[in-house]
Structures are given as C-alpha cells and as structure tokens.
Design a protein around this nucleic acid. Structure first.
Lengths: 122, 122
DNA sequence: ATTATTGTATTAAACGCTTAATACAATAAT
DNA sequence: ATTATTGTATTAAGCGTTTAATACAATAAT
C-alpha cells in the first residue's frame, strides 16, 4: 500500500506525487521529520539518487525543508499544505470530468455512473 | 483539440489512448478508413515509426485491422468498441475514486465536490 | 505495364531516466 | 576528539523512447 510504482511514467514524478499525498493525508504530519533519503529509497525499492531527485523537487516547491545534517522535515506552513491538497483535488476532478465528457457522458450521466460504482463497492 | 501530447509519458501510449478515444466517441466511426500512417504522424507532429507503433498495438488488440495496401480500418465489431468504452469508463472512475479516497474524501464529499465544479462550469 | 499509395522493416543516433558505486561535507551523537 | 548520521555531488553504464533517413513489399490507380 505504501509505494506503488509503475513503469509507464518516470519514477521520480510518481515519488513526488506519492510523497505529496502522504503529506496531505497526514501520513507525514505537519513539521514532522522524514526518514533519511537512503531509508526512503530502500523502502520504495528505488535508487537513492532517484529519491533524492523527488525530494529536491518537493523542497524546491516549499513543501519540505532541510536541516543540513539532521534531516528533512515537512513544512510547518499549514496553509501551504491546504493549498496543495486543493490543487490535487481540482486536478483530479477536472481531469476526470474531461475524460468522461470526451467519452460522451453528460453531467447527469457522470454522477449516476459514479453513484452506481460507489454502491457496488459498499 | 485533436492531438494533445505531454512529455511526461511515452508518446506512443498517449497515441493509443487518444485513438481509442476517437474510436469510442465516433470521431473514427465503426468500419471507417483511417488516414495513412504518415498523415496521422504529421497530424500529431510525431515520427511515423511512433505512430506505427501505436497503430500496431491497437491492431493487435483487435480494434483496427489492415488491408495490406489499401489502408487501416476501424473494426466493424460494434460490441468490441462498446467493451473498450466500458473499460475506459471503469478505469477513469476507479482511478478517480481511489485518488479522492486517499485524499480523505468520503463518498458523499466526492459527489458534492464534483457537483460544485459542474455548477461552476455551466 | 507503369506509377503511386499504402503498410512495414532496418539501422543509427540522441535524449532522458535509472541504477551503481563512490566520495565529500556538515553536524549530531558519543 | 572521534564516530556515525545526514544530505549532496560525480561519473559511468544500461535501457527504452523517439527521431531520422531509407528501403522494401504489395496492390490500387492510371
């Protein structure tokens, strides 16, 4: 459940997405310390360089920060995390709607199709 | 609107998806003839080899067939197209739900979030 | 019969991603 | 002071995707 990586997209982008998700969903809480790069890399069965690449990007985005030798931490800016979460929600919904509309579904049909699958999953 | 290609995934897989979509949505109708590989490639600003690769895969899946020198055609099997369409719908909905659930939304919240965005788009 | 159009195959080069193997730099822990 | 832990940087190799440039094969069009 923890690290799901496909080969159909660059691994480092998938890592970025999954770490973002862990932060937004509280798996890595606000201000908490992350495991060392090497540990994360092993956990995800990935080369340390690749994990480093993802972390550097997230740090560049302001979602993480580094204390040179004591480790990496999740931002303490509650608002920034909220914004990221909103961005993700928007992207997911927009993308989904776009795909369904292209397949010929109208708004009503989309809602009922989702409801049907939700029912089936209960 | 016609060919939207990113650099974050292999182009040939994106071509496959978009051609599938064109078939399912009737842009390339049942049994109709497709433009020549070279034309499609130019249309999508892609190397003919890359377009060929996508088409070969779709042919392998049975969605297209070839008359050696007169061109490529969409299958005449209405049922097969329906199945592909259903598969796509399932994938889109499942993927979307998965992402939203991981972000902490429950079923009810998902539906209302979508409805809100639908309203905003009217 | 000849020509044009179609799909297909081949070879080489360029590019980005990933891994591997190291090494270095800074500082926390002892 | 020494050691261990952390992030970071470097170099080389392998791999898949994409492009480019050609050539071939089969048949429809003329």
């Amino acid at each position: 459940m923890s690290w799901e990586l496909n080969s159909d997209r660059p691994i480092y982008t998938q890592l970025i997405e999954q770490i973002e998700l862990k932060i937004c969903s509280g798996v890595y809480p606000l201000g908490s310390k992350l495991p060392p790069v090497r540990d994360l890399a092993q956990e995800a069965s990935v080369n340390p360089n690749t994990m480093q690449r993802a972390l550097a990007r997230l740090e560049n985005d302001g979602l993480l920060y580094t204390h040179r030798t004591s480790g990496r931490f999740v931002t303490e800016d509650r608002n920034m995390i909220k914004q990221v979460k909103n961005r993700l929600v928007q992207e997911h919904i927009q993308g989904f709607l776009e795909k369904m509309l292209r397949l010929g579904f109208d708004h009503e049909e989309i809602l009922s199709a989702i409801s049907a699958i939700m029912e089936a999953k209960k």
